[in-house]
Structures are given as structure tokens and as C-alpha cells.
Design a protein around this nucleic acid. Structure first.
Lengths: 238, 238
DNA sequence: TTGTGTCTAGTTGTCTGACAAATTCAAGTG
DNA sequence: CACTTGAATTTGTCAGACAACTAGACACAA
């Protein structure tokens, strides 16, 4: 079943990339194509696939570079904590960039997520989390305006909606997170400085207060490799 | 930043794919390339990216098809249950194929996962789970041979190692699952009938018995869209 | 009728060669 | 030293061609 050059190619390229230190440049495309015995067009299709997986990055005029792994953030999913808290716990330095706070009205999706009527006034908070300067996560919180108004934004606000709510003393209770894997959309790709379609871990979660009301509805996008999420599962009929 | 044909293309193609019913064929590559005003080479790179995301599937000689979503399996991660159990609970029909049981010796990775000495005799169980005929998950269990010998395989064994252990009355306790997103490796891609590098949700988990011993070390690969995994998270400072 | 083999038009897979656009870096210039 | 220029290198895109494969139509024999 390995008749096609494309499949041989992927195998050899995967090995080459795995054995090349992060940040280092790969041979040029004409050079690689000759080495692997395929045309540049076929090589480029394979490269596109690896780029979609986030393993390499291509820059016109400069070359193709292997993306290296950096330190990972480890978290148990049973406990809800902000990335900031999570990073502090592990002595990692994270920064927040591209912070955007805006007013909007709930569309169907937001209305379902927050369990509010369509058209309700809501506040949306978007931000990019960076580790060692590189984007590693993109977070979009949407909250009812009665919970959080852009004007309320204190100077101490450093980007974590969760930390802010906790610090403010809101009666948070639990969160429900849906977990899946997706390819980056245009908006997410731009924010995370990756290509549309690149592999991402995606959480799609709601934070409830003690009365069962939804305080915030959050979309989280994580670049794989920087995070280790784990969860403890009890046996079914236990 | 949208100067390159490739980026315009991805946007238009994403829309086209989203608006095309599942299972339906897209226009041929020369036709599409003309419509979108790009060369076939550029079009194919974009197509490769969408194929990597699992949104389309290309078949030489036949055409390019949009893969449609089918019914989803919903599961809370707090409770450990087999896909079989999970499907039954929701009246979905799943089948198991490509069941392979083999003996091997623990390599470094398996030894770490099972917490046994390097070279310990282990049993590996591989299988593909299908819903509506299509592969949706690929599972690889590795167990110490003292827990599970291939010869022990009862006729009732239908592919679920977990269900087997539970039914046998083993004192299962908890499982720890690590969650991430990855691109498919060659082995996984072949089993799931997708392309190497396609987006997958990946669990990497261990099941412990009441004494803290690891009973099985499992790699699970899920094609996104067929599953809804969720988890309830408690607020940090409870 | 049913099944089988063959043919053909259409589709994806790959190749070759070329040019455009961006980057890098060294040499030149004030 | 700061800035410009220009050549070499590298990725982005294009055009056209042929090979490999698929699906459907068709003829023909059982």
C-alpha cells in the first residue's frame, strides 16, 4: 500500500524532522526533493501536511524551520484553574497579548452556551497566551454584561477572566468542559501565528455559579505539545 | 496579510466544503482551480491541508469527497467506560475490526507506562472501532502477560479489554488519562483509513487496580466529530 | 437474466521547468 | 556608523504534460 511517493516521503520527512533540533533550518526544497527522489510539487504537499501538524514552519525567502518543543504546562482537568495559575504553579513564565474586550449581543451559539435569551448584552474577552514569547493558547470568554462589563475592567486585570471572577469573590462552583481536536479557523490561526487548519486541542467550556447559572462561556485553543492535560477516571460501576 | 493565493483559497474552499453535503463529490481539481483562479498545484496544497483536517477525502481516479458527520458518542471523562458501553448507553451501533492480539516484550515506553522492568512479557491488543461502518477510533492496549495472556482470550471477547477485565472481576480502581491532539502516525493512519498527519484526539492512559498496580496501558486515537468528551471541573480553592 | 471482461472518459497523483516574491547578507556609500 | 544597493538563496505560484486509477457503459457468453 506504500506505492505512492507521497507516503514514502512522509515517512522519511517525519524521520528527518524528528531528528532535527528545534529551530534549525531544513535543506532547501529543491535539495530535499532531489535527496528524496520526488518532485518539488510532491515534496511541498508533504511539507504542507507537516506544517498543518505544527511540526515545521515555512518562511518565504528564508527557509523551512523545525518547530522545537519548549517547556510544558501540566494540569489535572478535575480542578479548574487559569493558565496563569497553572504556569505559576510550575514556575513557568507566561505573558498575555492581543487582549481585546468588546461588547456584543448574544447570537444563537452564545445564547445556547450562556443559557440566556438571544440578543442579550454580553462581554467578550479575547487574548493570546504566550510561553517563551511564542503563542501557545488562544482564549475567548463570553460573559453576560451583568456579570462583567468592559468598564469594570480593573487596572490589575492581566487577562484571566477566571482569576478575576475568583478574586472578585463570585460564587463559582463548577465548570463543564467539552474536549475535542480541530483544525485552526482563520481567526484562531491568525492569533496563534499558525496556518489555518493546523492541529489544535480545543476546550469548549462553561463555568457555573452555585445557583446553576452560567457565568462564562469559553473557547480555548491549545497548540499541542505545550500542555499536558490529564484526568482521573473512576471505573463505571464502582 | 491575505496577499497569497493560498490564504484566499483556504477561505473559499472552507466555505465550499462547509456548504457541501457530506459524502458528495467536489468539482474536479482542474475545474476548481479555474473557478478559484489558482493553479492546480496551489489548489492541491490547500486540499492536502483540508484532508489533513479530515474534512475531505481524495480518491485517485474517483474524485474528492466531503466527509460528513454522523452520530456522536457522548461521554463524561470522570467515569471510565469502554466505547462499547458508551455506545450501548446511547443506542448506537459500533463494531470492532482488525482485532490483533500479540505477545511482545516491554520496550522503554511500555516499561514506563506499565511500571514494569524493561523486557517484561506483555500482551498487546489492537483494534479499530467503527460506527456506521466507518473507522472512528483506534485503540492499543498493552498489558503485562500475567494480567492477560493471548491464550486466555475467551470466545466472548469482542474487543474491549476494559469490559473483559471488569467482567473477569479484576479489582479495577481508577484510570489516569493524558489528553492531547496529534497528527496521525503511519500506523494509525492506515488503521483509521485516513492520511498520515490527519487531526486526531489522543488519549494516553493507564488503568490502576486497588493496589496501585498498572493493569493496562492504552493509546486511544479518536477521529474528531464522532465523540463528545466532557469533564466537570471544580474551582481550584474549593 | 446474470455475470464477466473490455473499453473509455474522467479524476487524482506526480513530474518538469519556469518565474515571482521575500529574505538574507555582504559590499558599497554617505 | 547608518543606510542603500544588489546578488544569491529560498519559498510561493504557475502552466502543461503524462501516469495511475476509478467508475460506468457496453458487448458478449453462460
Amino acid at each position: 500500500m506504500t506505492h505512492f511517493p507521497f507516503q514514502r516521503l512522509q515517512s522519511e520527512l517525519a524521520s528527518l524532522i524528528a531528528h532535527t533540533p528545534g529551530g534549525q533550518r531544513l535543506p532547501s526544497e529543491p535539495e530535499l526533493a532531489r535527496q528524496m527522489g520526488v518532485s518539488r510539487a510532491t515534496l511541498r504537499e508533504a511539507m504542507r501536511s507537516f506544517e498543518t501538524q505544527g511540526l515545521i514552519r515555512r518562511r518565504q525567502g528564508a527557509g523551512t524551520f523545525v518547530v522545537g518543543q519548549v517547556s510544558v504546562m501540566e494540569s489535572g482537568l478535575e480542578v479548574l484553574e487559569s493558565l496563569d495559575t497553572m504556569a505559576k504553579r510550575q514556575n513557568l513564565e507566561v505573558t498575555v497579548s492581543d487582549l481585546q474586550v468588546e461588547k456584543m449581543f448574544a447570537d444563537q451559539d452564545v445564547a445556547n452556551g450562556l443559557i440566556v435569551p438571544l440578543g442579550t448584552r454580553v462581554t467578550r474577552v479575547r487574548r493570546v497566551v504566550r510561553a517563551e514569547g511564542r503563542p501557545v493558547a488562544y482564549l475567548v470568554d463570553t460573559l453576560p454584561e451583568e456579570i462583567f462589563r468592559p468598564d469594570d475592567l480593573p487596572t490589575s486585570f492581566h487577562g484571566s477572566v477566571l482569576d478575576y471572577l475568583i478574586h472578585r469573590g463570585d460564587p463559582l462552583n463548577v465548570a463543564r468542559a467539552n474536549i475535542t481536536a480541530i483544525g485552526a479557523t482563520a481567526e484562531v490561526a491568525k492569533s496563534l501565528e499558525i496556518q489555518r487548519g493546523d492541529v489544535l486541542l480545543h476546550f469548549h467550556s462553561q463555568v457555573y455559579d452555585k445557583s446553576g447559572k452560567v457565568l462564562t462561556y469559553t473557547f480555548s485553543y491549545f497548540i499541542p505539545g505545550y500542555f499536558h492535560f490529564h484526568v482521573v477516571r473512576r471505573v463505571g460501576n464502582g
